[in-house]
């Protein structure tokens, strides 16, 4: 299998993961699309490192989260390089209305957290253990625990889901 084919397979297998990272780190559709493209580019750029990585999933989470953090810090409004009219990029339209408000509320709550806590909450929702979260984010397991209890408290203090917008 050629490098290009391996890369395409990796992105196709993990496109949902990349998409979820963009949702957690941005609330504007255009910015999410741009971030998606940046993560794809960064993954291609370091694809040789990925092949050597002992834990490929950890590597991909890190690249995605690091790209989101740096990209959003630098980001200024720029025109999109490639138009993404792909169906999963319009996911919100296919969600049934009953759960839509709750999902929007959930995203809004996550985006209210600071950059690192957003990543921790995202990994927690992805079903990662505290140990795995620590390995991916580079903090100790006990620190993950402390941060998670702080996040729980913050989320509990919020009232029931209020209407919010996923993107404009």
């Amino acid at each position: 299998m050629s490098k290009e084919e391996e890369f395409v397979n990796l992105i196709q297998e993990n496109q949902g993961l990349i998409y979820k990272i963009t949702l957690v780190y941005s609330n504007e559709k255009e910015e999410q699309d741009d971030l998606y493209q940046e993560i794809v580019y960064q993954t291609w750029k370091s694809f040789d490192q990925f092949k050597k990585a002992s834990k490929p999933s950890t590597w991909l989470y890190r690249v995605g989260m690091n790209t989101a953090i740096t990209h959003l810090n630098k980001s200024k409004k720029k025109p999109l390089l490639v138009s993404l009219d792909h169906s999963f990029m319009n996911y919100s339209e296919s969600v049934d209305s009953e759960k839509e408000e709750k999902i929007k509320w959930l995203y809004a709550q996550i985006r209210n957290l600071n950059l690192l806590d957003r990543g921790i909450m995202f990994l927690f929702l992805e079903g990662k253990s505290y140990e795995e979260i620590g390995q991916i984010t580079g903090i100790s397991t006990s620190n993950v625990g402390t941060r998670m209890s702080r996040i729980k408290q913050k989320l509990k203090s919020e009232a029931t889901p209020k209407p919010t917008k996923i993107w404009n």
Binding site: V40, F88, Y91, S94, V95, E126
Partner: peptide
Amino acid sequence: ADLSQKIEKQDKIQKELLMEITKQK
């Protein structure tokens, strides 16, 4: 988990589009 499941069911992004993104970036 429900959201993830639905996202996973979406169509796969096309190879041509992916490579175009990479080259443009």
